[in-house]
Amino acid sequence: MESDKITIEEAQKQVDQWIKQYGVRYFSELTNMAVLTEEVGELARVMARKYGDQSFKAGEKDNVEEEIADVLWVLLCIANQTGVDVTSAFRKSLEKKTERDNKRHINNPKLNDHGRE
């Protein structure tokens, strides 16, 4: 559904509103960095089981979407509390990568090895 889509800016504002309404306050920046690392680890665990060589243990579930959303949530918390406009930062990052890498990956024989599909 088109109406379900939100911008990065809107997501950043919604996280801030939620923290102010329900979360009492942001955790410290260092705590949120640790929480982000934890969430990335949880995503890695699911990815290793779904796409890697490990299998799901009893009680574990394929919740890649949930884990990605958890990573994004904490990342937006960190952005909010450090004053980073993620939309602007992402645009700058995309421009930098395009300028720096616009031929690099196209000319990489490892990425163009169609036998590995």
Results as ranks from 00 to 15, higher is better:
Glu2Asn: 15
Lys5Asn: 14
Ile6Gln: 15
Ile6Gly: 03
Thr7Val: 01
Ile8Cys: 00
Ile8Gly: 00
Glu10Gln: 14
Glu10Asp: 09
Ala11Leu: 13
Ala11Val: 08
Gln12His: 04
Lys13Gln: 11
Gln14Leu: 14
Val15Ser: 05
Gln17Met: 12
Tyr22His: 14
Tyr22Cys: 14
Gly23Tyr: 08
Gly23Gln: 07
Val24Ser: 14
Arg25Ile: 13
Arg25Glu: 14
Arg25Phe: 13
Tyr26Val: 07
Tyr26Lys: 10
Tyr26Asn: 09
Phe27Ile: 11
Ser28Met: 08
Leu30Cys: 00
Asn32Thr: 04
Asn32Cys: 12
Asn32Ile: 07
Asn32Arg: 12
Met33Arg: 13
Met33Gln: 08
Thr37Trp: 10
Thr37Leu: 10
Glu38Thr: 11
Glu38Cys: 10
Glu39Ser: 10
Glu39Ile: 08
Glu39Val: 10
Val40Ile: 13
Val40Thr: 06
Ala44Pro: 03
Arg45Tyr: 10
Val46Gly: 01
Ala48Tyr: 11
Ala48Pro: 03
Arg49Ser: 03
Tyr51Gly: 02
Tyr51Trp: 05
Tyr51His: 05
Gly52Glu: 01
Gly52Leu: 00
Gly52Val: 02
Gln54Ala: 03
Gln54Pro: 02
Ser55Pro: 01
Ser55Ile: 13
Phe56Lys: 06
Phe56Pro: 02
Phe56Met: 03
Lys57Leu: 03
Ala58Gly: 09
Ala58His: 08
Gly59Ile: 01
Glu60Cys: 01
Glu60Thr: 04
Asp62Ala: 11
Asp62Cys: 08
Asn63Met: 07
Val64Thr: 14
Val64Ile: 15
Val64Ser: 05
Val64Trp: 08
Glu66Phe: 13
Glu67His: 01
Glu67Gly: 05
Glu67Lys: 06
Ile68Pro: 08
Asp70Ile: 13
Leu72Phe: 10
Trp73Asp: 00
Trp73Pro: 02
Leu76His: 01
Leu76Trp: 04
Leu76Gln: 03
Leu76Ile: 00
Cys77His: 00
Cys77Phe: 00
Ala79Leu: 09
Asn80Lys: 01
Gln81Asp: 00
Gln81Phe: 02
Gln81Tyr: 04
Thr82Gln: 02
Gly83Phe: 02
Gly83Tyr: 01
Val84Ser: 00
Val86Arg: 05
Thr87Asp: 12
Ser88Thr: 14
Ser88Glu: 12
Ala89Thr: 09
Ala89Asn: 09
Arg91Ser: 00
Arg91Gly: 02
Arg91Gln: 04
Lys92Asn: 03
Ser93Pro: 03
Ser93Asp: 11
Leu94Tyr: 11
Glu95Phe: 13
Glu95Thr: 15
Lys96Trp: 14
Lys97His: 13
Lys97Ile: 07
Lys97Phe: 13
Thr98Lys: 12
Thr98Gly: 00
Arg100His: 07
Asp101Gly: 07
Asn108Cys: 05
Asn108Arg: 06
Asn108Pro: 00
Pro109Ser: 03
Lys110Met: 09
Lys110Ile: 09
Leu111Asn: 06
Leu111Trp: 15
Leu111Lys: 10
Asn112Val: 02
Asp113Arg: 04
His114Met: 07
Gly115Pro: 07
Glu117Cys: 06
Glu117Asp: 09
Glu117Tyr: 12
